[in-house]
Nucleic acid binder design. Structure first.
Lengths: 346, 346
DNA sequence: AGCGTTACCGGTAACGTTCCCGGTGGTTTT
DNA sequence: AAAACCACCGGGAACGTTACCGGTAACGCT
């Protein structure tokens, strides 16, 4: 283990003080050109790298952002890429921690990063999280914190999120316009805002078109495929079964699709389907699944920008909320009016 | 910005020395029970958290692992989850950096983490990387480093990887057994070992079954869907077109599948297809795509374990190579013998 | 000649922690 | 009663860096 060159080594061999070396390496003011070039040359030779550790200790900031996400699926990975992009440019390093949708992991990760490892946080909460004390601790410490994607009204902090209500609205409106009458929704866990917002959009669309809300068509289930499958199987057993399903994630849409196919129903004729996220898979299955696209990369960038902003200026941005707009991508699974190719099922 | 409580604060209010506080908080030896409880109580009250920064500076280790990956697709995200798992348990924090398959980004990331931020690295190289000086610098510093997934023989370090040759063999053998005669391969970039190894497996299988190797059936293209699509389009234009395609990733398989469908060919009758990675999508498309599954989570865990091992003991493990075995998952895209349901195409 | 200005540099403290060494008192051993 | 031992504690240095303050020489100005 060769130990790296320090500022002291340079000072010693050049027979000058560490202060001078430090200045030569940075400010360039208050230091003779000759000594400066000497320092620079030697530091090059020893390939000196300043210790970020010592620096961080000294000036009490690490230039590192802690990013806490529930997992690293397609959408979130894309968001993280966005965060990475602007963070890197601003001279920050990011530490990504997956909570695995587990409240415990989320707490442990937060605690760890809190011990003077990061300057602040960019967070998307896990689906298990119902209590936010560990995040509030961040703010008590006076650290900047931005919430993104999965936000929560219990958390007073700058937020960047999708307009999930509009997403829900777009999907539902589209199904209505395609002539579907009994539209079911597979919403996510009740404690997640994205879940409730998308449900709100669904309700708004029904109201707009004066369609009665039927509670048995509203189902909460987890984000995974299996749960969605089972819920759909149940839905399709109803005497008056729904003729369309809106799921608030594509994974859930896949689950629903499997149940639909198993039952022998055809999309979009017998039943319509719309998902959420516009994951690549939606374009690959047959029929293609219509889905609400979110600008994930942009969303990540926006979150990081907001973070940096909050970092630099002292102003309180905790009531700022950037809301990005979704876009509906229509595919075959819900396109009944434009191109009916198959005969109607009995 | 409320500054956190330090060991000094505790010492001052308790009118004892910092040394004693430090001992009380750790060793428990050489400290009176009474003072110890007092320290513990006060530290609880001030909710004291030791500064990992100061600690790291002092003992020259950060308890952090730098993980550098080309991207965060399904397989790699799963591997990272595995790394995370054992790292967390061993008291390490991981820093994940995506190089985005870019050599430049990979260098920048490595450089950054090198400045006394991490104790070592777990690395999967980007597809652009042809030169490894930035990684060798890690070893010059005497830091442990484990290479996983995408390894390279130019890098002398402990490795954890899939038996890619066997993966290639399994896929090809299966296609041969299903009666396919002209089997093309879509290999990845030439400088990647995983690419060449899978190709080797392909060649081995051909040799085993005494099938002549035809150079025009061997194609290198990038990992993305588009490239695979275009390459396949070209392949299918040949006068004697291949009757099966083995792609070394599922993304590529999807691209190939699109080209195949466009051409009006049917799987598995007219043409067989096998992918690699067993991503969920392979089970969702129609027909389902056969694919070589790799134990990604296990692979990540193994890499982290090897890292920890190298960290703790001084022994040189740089010639250790853990090779995990793949498994072929057969789906409809290549299953010609078992269930022929459609008439033969003219 | 005396004074202020400038250009350059060094010493020291500080960031929060641990480690090593050297004390104290009090008790036991010889 | 001297010597040895123990349990407990404090002082100081060290990790690598920068900030602050002060000092010295050289120079120019009145």
């Amino acid at each position: 283990m060769i130990k790296p060159a320090t500022i002291k080594d340079i000072a010693k061999t050049l027979k000058i003080s560490t202060s001078t070396v430090s200045r030569a390496l940075r400010n360039a003011s208050d230091v003779n050109l000759k000594t400066r070039t000497a320092v620079l040359a030697l530091s090059e030779e020893l390939n000196y790298q300043p210790s970020r550790l010592a620096l961080s200790l000294q000036q009490k900031q690490t230039h590192t952002i802690g990013v806490i996400v529930p997992n690293l699926d397609y959408v979130i990975a894309t968001m993280v890429k966005g965060i990475d992009e602007v963070a890197l440019e601003a001279g920050y390093t990011v530490m990504v921690c997956q909570s695995n949708e587990s409240f415990g992991r989320e707490m442990v990760n937060t605690r760890r990063l809190l011990d003077s490892l990061v300057d602040g946080f960019i967070i998307s909460v896990s689906s298990e999280t119902k209590v936010f004390d560990h995040f509030k601790k961040i703010q008590q410490k006076g650290m900047p914190m931005v919430v993104f994607d999965r936000v929560s009204s219990d958390l007073v902090a700058p937020k960047v999120r999708l307009d999930n209500t509009e997403g829900g609205y777009l999907a539902t409106e589209h199904l209505i316009e395609q002539g579907y009458k009994r539209i079911a929704i597979l919403a996510g866990p009740k404690n997640l805002t994205i879940s409730n917002d998308r449900l709100d959009g669904y309700l708004k669309a029904l109201k707009k078109f004066k369609i009665k809300v039927e509670p048995e068509l509203i189902n909460h289930c987890n984000f995974n495929q299996q749960d969605a499958y089972e819920t759909t199987v149940d839905l399709l057993k109803m005497k008056r079964r729904p003729d369309a399903i809106f799921t608030i994630s594509d994974r859930m849409a896949i689950g629903a699709m499997l149940a639909i196919k198993e039952k022998g129903l055809r999309m979009p004729i017998d039943i319509g389907l719309v998902g959420f996220n516009n994951e690549p898979v939606t374009a690959l299955v047959t029929p293609g699944i219509s889905s609400v696209e979110q600008p994930a990369f942009e969303l990540g960038k926006a979150a990081a920008k907001l973070f940096i902003e909050q970092m630099h200026h002292e102003e309180d941005l905790s009531d700022v909320e950037r809301v990005l707009r979704p876009r509906l991508i229509v595919r075959e699974s819900s396109l009944r009016k434009a191109g009916v190719r198959l005969p109607r099922a009995k």
